[in-house]
Design a protein around this nucleic acid. Sequence first.
DNA 1: CGTGGTCTTGACACGATTCAAGCCCCGTGG
DNA 2: CCACGGGGCTTGAATCGTGTCAAGACCACG
Lengths: 249, 249
Amino acid sequence: MAVLDIKFTSHDCGSCPIRHRAVCARCDSDELAMLEEIKYYRSFEAGQTVIWSGDHMDFLGSVVTGVATLSHTLEDGRTQMVGLLLPSDFVGRPGRELAAYDVTAITDITMCCFRRKPFEQMMDRTPHIAQRLLQMTLDELDAAREWMLILGRKTAREKIASLLAILGRRDASLGLGGPVGDEIVFDLPLTREAMADYLGLTLETVSRQVSALKKDGLIELEGKRRVRVPSYDALLAETGDDSDGGLMV
Amino acid sequence: MAVLDIKFTSHDCGSCPIRHRAVCARCDSDELAMLEEIKYYRSFEAGQTVIWSGDHMDFLGSVVTGVATLSHTLEDGRTQMVGLLLPSDFVGRPGRELAAYDVTAITDITMCCFRRKPFEQMMDRTPHIAQRLLQMTLDELDAAREWMLILGRKTAREKIASLLAILGRRDASLGLGGPVGDEIVFDLPLTREAMADYLGLTLETVSRQVSALKKDGLIELEGKRRVRVPSYDALLAETGDDSDGGLMV
DNA sequence: CGTGGTCTTGACACGATTCAAGCCCCGTGG
DNA sequence: CCACGGGGCTTGAATCGTGTCAAGACCACG
């Protein structure tokens, strides 16, 4: 997490760490200047709720640093995570005033927030923002569908393996802990309970299956939150996906 | 299904039954004329596969009549439906050449197909199409997230009740079988197996829970495929969602 | 050194799956 | 006209995986 935990304080889009991946990725300098007019930063500590489902949202925004979650809760307390928000991910839906999900910071986070009305007006005028948002939304939809397969059809062991594979793939693509053979190492930004809410399991089952994968030599733990995967391919074989990798993008 | 089963043969967008809900909804007459240039119709019979995951797709398109599904299959045969495509729903992803999911007709269907390349060029030029596609994609993402909650956290009984509530809500919104009290009646376009693939269950469990809901008076069946719900509110109470209706849109 | 949060492990219960048998309905062919 | 066959569906019995409840370990922090 070291890289992601740096508090981002500058107000200059030019030096923003998510400049080229967020909703503003395609904007030119004029458009960025307009965004600077309507944006502000907010920070939340790990564990804080950013927004409650049903709340009025007067902003839309991007996660700049840290990790947050989107989740649904049933009245009896069962909760299902429906989105894992990493740096550059977008929060809120243009045209919707009331939040549809709970948003919770699970590490300390910084968000870049745009005032709703001017942002929506800007979306209508500058296609670059809408184009990028469409691309990001299509990516999220793909991720949601892969996730649905995990929730609906995989065993507990396959679910854990899939989650670790997804997190590992992401960190590998960021170039943290470069590839040595197909070994990968990464930090787990989720508690056992958050993993359970992601996967539709109980935290006890998560704990048992993590232990089982460890016993079988598929993963090693340094502390509770740092994971070493000696063979990424061996891990993939435990996900139940097609042998070609499964995680088509 | 009577209304949806009508074969649509005209090539004139003006009289198209999904003119105002599909990806072309915002297009003006000039834009429609351009679409007419690059479109063609295809029909598939119930049970036919429209596209296999991994196939090259040389078109994008909309379901005009009938019902189709999007699904993932694991190598050992477990399958999870990840999309239920109703008239006006869009198939394919701009910029992606290879299909990511299997598309299957579950009733006879008609599709309005656009040749890929010219459609993608047109998307870049005319914001009306991209705007509408963004809106539709955001709706699908919401549906996928509601679906994830169902898959991850609901019991078999709640899953069945939720699916029936979703299908009933849709048919009610189309004004078929108008509201009498809160009774609704609708056709079930899905087999027990398709319902199972939707909900991450086995077909036996689906059958058992449908029987249980029937025994408890929450639904009545006329034949296997026509459902009467005497009280929609009572059905909602079985979904496990918040009492306020849960299905926020 | 105590406290609280997080995680692990065990024993047991229960809900969903699996495997199997048979029903219902409709279309086909004798 | 009826027998036959098959697809879709239902139901039962046994099994298995995951959830539930409970106890305790580990670790950071005051």
